[in-house]
């Protein structure tokens, strides 16, 4: 018994490599002889879109010919495997004709899990009636996709805005700075501008009054005040206005008529100051000039 088992094992072991090779069946060995079969090098890890090639080399009699009409057509799909290309070549060697058939397949099957597929068995026939069958060749399709496809939307993670940097303090500082800048600008404008572009601000006495406000209460300041007022009168009169011409001035410009006596008084004082060298109290004189300028400005504006 033991001998029988060992003999069976030996036979089995010897037969295994032959089984591992693709068994190619030649129905009429005398007529067609399979010389070589070559399958893809890898049977696992195949993915959709991969191109698999296998070839078959057959020797037939020199006068025999391959029956092309029985060959599978290019583009033929079988269980997700498409015949992409079929190339046939032949050569004569040692009185025999050797055909080489090159099959090129592309995988279009898809699965969520590894699945075993096969390159289909191909049958090659010759005019002499001899046939050769290329058996199917199995391989594992290893999909990269998950097994169950779901819509992407439920799996989306909401994209939140990045948290904002704290800018309140900076904004407050910026706003304060802008406010101060605007305030400073307005003060500078108030101090230095002529305002002549504003309505009712470009009168000669309005101009004089703005300048009077900036004068220091000094001897020079009061002299400047008298000159400014004098200049404003000159501008209104169109020429040098003298103290003796005040009546003619108010006759010419009746809006100032109500202030005739004050204008007379101003000229008397201004003449004493400018030409007589009599200096009144500076602060008081400047106040008088400003008060008169305000009144003249009001007349000038006709308010």
């Amino acid at each position: 018994m033991k001998q029988i088992f060992l003999a069976w094992l030996v036979v089995g072991l010897v037969a295994m490599p032959a089984g591992a090779e693709t068994p190619v069946a030649a129905t009429s060995p005398a007529a067609a002889q399979v010389l070589n079969v070559r399958n893809p090098a890898h049977y696992a890890g195949i993915q959709m879109g991969d191109v698999l090639q296998r070839s078959l080399q057959v020797a037939v009699a020199a006068q025999d010919q391959l029956n092309d009409s029985n060959l599978p057509l290019k583009g033929l799909q079988r269980h997700g495997i498409e015949l992409r290309q079929l190339a046939v070549s032949s050569a004569v060697k040692d009185g025999k004709k050797i055909y080489t058939l090159q099959f090129e397949y592309q995988v279009f099957a898809n699965s969520g899990q590894p699945v075993q597929l096969q390159l289909p068995a191909e049958r090659v026939s010759f005019n002499s009636g001899a046939t050769v069958e290329l058996p199917a060749w199995r391989f594992w399709l290893m999909s990269q996709l998950p097994d169950r496809l779901h819509p992407a939307k439920p799996t989306l993670i909401t994209q939140y805005r990045p948290s904002l940097v704290e800018t309140q303090t900076t904004q407050l500082g910026l706003g304060l700075s802008a406010l101060l800048a605007v305030l400073g600008g307005l003060i500078l404008l108030y101090r230095n501008a002529d305002w002549t572009w504003l309505p009712m601000m470009n009168g000669h006495f309005a101009h004089a009054y703005r300048r009077l406000k900036r004068l220091p209460a000094t001897a020079d300041g009061q002299k400047q005040a008298a000159l400014m007022m004098q200049h404003a009168f000159n501008q209104h009169y169109g020429q040098q206005l003298l103290g003796s011409e005040v009546h003619a001035f108010v006759q010419q410009q009746p809006v100032f008529q109500s202030l005739e006596s004050q204008i007379q008084a101003f000229f008397a004082q201004a003449n004493a100051l400018l030409y007589g060298g009599q200096l009144p109290a500076a602060t008081e004189y400047l106040q008088q000039c400003k008060a008169l300028a305000r009144e003249l400005r009001a007349c000038e504006r006709r308010v």
Binding site: L227, Q230, H231, N234, G238, Q239, Q240, L274
Partner: peptide, 13 residues
């Protein structure tokens, strides 16, 4: 001249 030249002098005005 009397009408055009005035006090204050032009530069000071």
């Amino acid at each position: 001249i009397l009408a055009s030249v005035s006090v204050p002098a032009r530069a000071k005005a």
